[in-house]
Design a protein around this nucleic acid. Structure first.
Lengths: 335, 335
DNA sequence: AACCGGATTGGCAGCGCTGCCAAAAGGCGA
DNA sequence: TCGCCTTTTGGCAGCGCTGCCAATCCGGTT
């Protein structure tokens, strides 16, 4: 009863049909549990599939099926180095796995041209949906997305108009809320420490919101340090040291995210600077470690997993086109 | 010259051929730059593609092409919450993007049955290769992988036999090296603090190597604390507090990874315990923050990105079947 | 015994593309 | 100008599957 398969030739549905003594369409119906078939047909197919080790070919299935679109979703994210995006994927895959839909991913490295190229490449797989990050894209990317007539979901940012559906929160509002918190706590000489803004447009929006809110309180940024390269604790530490050398009398620092803030906290510990007595620290993201610190980090928790989940729901069902999931300011003990 | 396309029907290669006044095969050759064609044909096709906004259908292309395998690779990872796996993907996508091959990902949540189901689902897309994590799989997963006759690469772990190609390092050796380091530094009452081992088999292998090396030095684990759930700084902090309550006189702790160790470090800072005077801490992974800490964390740096890169190289070229990328012990200042 | 309606089944075109092969078009020396 | 060889081109089968439609089966009716 051993069914040695000819090397190079995989088992096809036709093989299964022959082995089960049934027609192809019947086997197809059984496998997809679609349409009606007898119990006997079900059993025979199951037996033949198991015996032959049949694995359906979805390339063929999707090509032949309705609308010729694949049960796949294409996802373009700017980076995998920043925890935010794996978290997004986490929420996404958790929700999509339940429906048996895998993600095809592309990493743009924050480059709009790469994003466009990746979008085109992903669309060539005829995915059921295309997920992008943020609202800023090349005109070509937008044109591609529009012409493809697949569902498009833009994640994370809600500050602007989207192509189709948008799921996220307002980065401007986060920045503003952070500024108001610092001002309310009495800080007046507030500096910003961030990673490369030209590249991370969401961070730029947060900073814009932050400065706007400072302005409303009659304040301006007391200092500003931008580090080249991606955010990291090492960059945050070196950045705070540089910032303090230039602007020694600042009393609070708003970081572009928690990783940078952790580095800043380490710098303070090393230099023996009291937090928040001498310097207050404020982050962004609400990562896991923030709550475990000796002094819990003051930060804003963003609904990263939930964005992924809602994006999945959004591209499957016909939910609302625009979902603002908000954020939560965590008072912490560092600001 | 506006080419309004009928809604619902996408532009096909046949449309391009008609618009360019050429045959389908000529257009196909031009688009794939495969075989010979005239300069004139090249220009006409380029013009028609741009004008019509043609996006190739790779479902059809892969189905029709040689071996009917798609320019995709399937990747099954156990989690996206642990930085290790995004880093792996990072190396992988960086190398594959250059070749224009996207990854289709599945997240198994450390469950071998889910892994098997995901492998089957991914194989149904007829990927050019299947990437798995670790060497321990269900028999069904192995059978699927074998029968599919695609290239299989198992990443991260080299302690055992692989299905096809293996890229990683020896987790046992990491554990052993860590133990030897601690013993050489004079620590004798060494405890282990980890997350759920039943689930993270690599962590279990490290612990096994660690205990074996302790044994060679005539020592045994002085204490052991296993936390349910995934690793995190919060878990590390709570875990160290629990461990110290049970085993107050330990002098060093080996953590299952840097996240746990960071939590442990925070616990020590909070409790005012001198590191490493009162307690030495040793981690695993060599994450970014480890070097930025006031006292750089003693840990082992693993070649995560490089594993991804080499795995990509391995599945494209015909490199060696087994690549051990080693690891680097970072002395740090906490142990 | 002939008949009827719903459940089940099989045949086959066709999804969009590629690979094969033969046909057409050039290029060039005699 | 002709024949020969190389380059370029187009036609068409077929990849493995699904959707449509017609054929068949089954149980109970009349």
């Amino acid at each position: 009863m051993d069914d040695i398969q000819t090397p190079g030739r995989l088992v096809t549905l036709t093989d299964v049909a022959r082995a089960a003594g049934l027609g192809e369409s019947t086997v197809s119906r059984v496998l997809r549990n679609h349409g009606s078939y007898s119990k006997r047909a079900g059993e025979r197919v199951a037996e033949a599939v198991a015996r032959l080790g049949y694995v359906p070919n979805r390339l063929a299935g999707s090509l032949a099926g309705q609308g010729a679109s694949a049960r796949l979703v294409g996802v373009v994210i700017p980076s995998l180095a920043n925890v935010v995006f794996p978290d997004l994927l986490r929420g996404l895959t958790a929700a999509l796995d339940a429906a048996g839909i895998p993600c095809v991913i592309g990493v743009s490295d924050y480059d709009p041209d790469r994003e466009e190229a990746l979008a085109a490449a992903l669309l060539s797989w005829r995915p059921a949906a295309l997920l992008l990050t943020g609202l800023e894209h090349n005109p070509g990317t937008v044109a591609l997305a529009r012409a493809s007539s697949v569902r498009v979901v833009e994640m994370i940012d809600t500050d602007g108009e989207g192509i189709d559906a948008v799921v996220g929160f307002s980065n401007r509002a986060v920045g503003a809320a952070s500024a108001r918190h610092l001002v309310a706590r009495g800080y007046r000489r507030i500096a910003y420490l961030g990673h490369d803004l030209a590249v991370d447009l969401r961070a730029a929006k947060r900073l814009a919101g932050f400065e706007a809110a400072l302005g409303e309180a009659g304040l301006a940024l007391y200092g500003k340090e931008i580090r080249l390269g991606p955010s990291s604790p090492a960059s945050g530490r070196a950045g705070l040291e540089a910032l303090l050398a230039r602007v020694p009398d600042l009393d609070a620092v708003y970081f572009s995210n928690d990783d940078m803030a952790l580095g800043g906290y380490f710098a303070c510990l090393s230099a023996g600077l009291a937090v928040p007595g001498r310097i207050a620290l404020f982050g962004f993201n609400g990562l896991d470690f923030a709550a475990a610190m000796p002094q819990p980090l003051s930060t804003v928790r963003t609904p990263r997993l939930e964005i992924g989940r809602q994006a999945a729901a959004c591209l499957m069902g016909d939910g609302p086109k625009r979902i603002d999931l908000g954020f939560e300011l965590i008072e912490g003990a560092t600001a």
